[in-house]
Amino acid sequence: MTAEAISEGRAGNDFWDGVRLSMPVVVASAPFAVLFGALAVDNGFSVLEAFLMSAMIYGGASQMVGIELFGQHVAPWLIVLSIFAVNFRHVLYSAGIGRRIAHWPLLQQAAGYFILTDPQFAIAEARAESGRPVGFVWYLGLGLPVYVFWVIESGLGAVFGKMIPDTHALGIDFLLPIYFLGLVLGFRKRPLWAPVVAASAVASIIAYRTVGSPWHVSIGAIAGVLLAVILPPHHSGVGKRP
């Protein structure tokens, strides 16, 4: 056990604080986990393979792309490359979150990076921004329920996929954009927020229409990040030494 867990009550609280924050993520991702399992079996995966893919890759959009290409009998190396392309945005997450968790023991960091999803990164960044420590126990409380539900629900979808009701009427296809919009707005007090959002939005839409998915994510993200790098430091609020 680490120094963080010396006071056990405190650590328990941290864990449950994380679990509380994980609940919207669990709700929002549940339909996609089930849908993934169903589509995976539909595209020629076994139930065990669908389960393994969720457990080992743990990245919804990339898994969807992977099974879609698999169903179209695309060459294996191209499937792996596509998974890499869809997940490429995590490079930016890992560069950003590294500053917050560098004090963890190495094994905890290795585990932390394994569950570094979009909401995991956004919520951990928001906590760091509010001045509270991003501890391993809290981080695990946030990430573990999402992971466990994701893997189990993928398996359930693979087994019971044929019974999925009308997903459009339930709004399932648009739950994630709603959730991600909420996360974007949560960062609105950061310096440069509006210009970064504008640059990323415009660049991703243009890239979506021209280069196509999934590259619009990386292209749009790099546009926003570059803008923040290029603008003079007094706009970005960093580098001001008291």
Partner: peptide, 8 residues
């Protein structure tokens, strides 16, 4: 610092 807003 711009990563969350930019990617999301």
């Amino acid at each position: 610092n711009a990563v969350p807003a930019a990617v999301l």
